[in-house]
Design a protein around this nucleic acid. Sequence first.
DNA 1: GGTACTATTTGATGATTGTCAAACCATCTA
DNA 2: TAGATGGTTTGACAATCATCAAATAGTACC
Lengths: 101, 101
Amino acid sequence: MTRTLPQPATEAIDLVTVLQALGDPVRLELVRTLAKEDEPRPCSIDKYDVEISAPTLSHHWRILREAGLTTTFVNGRTRWVELRREDVHSRFPGLLDAVLA
Amino acid sequence: MTRTLPQPATEAIDLVTVLQALGDPVRLELVRTLAKEDEPRPCSIDKYDVEISAPTLSHHWRILREAGLTTTFVNGRTRWVELRREDVHSRFPGLLDAVLA
DNA sequence: GGTACTATTTGATGATTGTCAAACCATCTA
DNA sequence: TAGATGGTTTGACAATCATCAAATAGTACC
């Protein structure tokens, strides 16, 4: 019913890849938005205050997911994104907290 | 006698720029090496275990300095680089610690 | 089945990036 | 002053990246 898109295992999360993913203003803003709630958020373009097109947003979600920062759930026609807070924290303690502070 | 190359003020250090600077394997390694000692290190190519040319190393030092992560001192013909631990920590508490852990 | 809808993929484009060789600059020393 | 030295800047190149329009894929609803 609810499928999860492929993502790296916690142990496989790479620091350089994470920093690269966070080193983009749009993605940092997305991560900040996700961090406000501790549950999945829809990933539709109209739910975010960013000045990019839908394909570009989709591209950023992929970068974040493949870096190990987010999980994407597929449910019917809509998708949900969630920050992998605990996973990232267990791999790089304090990193997300510092970035989100 | 000892000159300091231009660098951003502590308050002007930008998070995205810092993350971009750290999001490169060579630069992350350089920062890690700097972090081992709490004093300036020479920036000559032969002092670092990196497989890049001198101009490329020079380029990376510039990126790190302009991001606000390092200070470069000029003394005669040689230069010294130092991690701006306290400055970065005061701007983004915990960030460097998390990255260097 | 057909249509509307959500979101991604494809393909293309302009900008940025990491890299090096060659030229250059400033400093030290003979 | 001339040569050697430490390091940077310039210029070029290939690779990567962020971006969008158009096409595509999968799902829901009538």
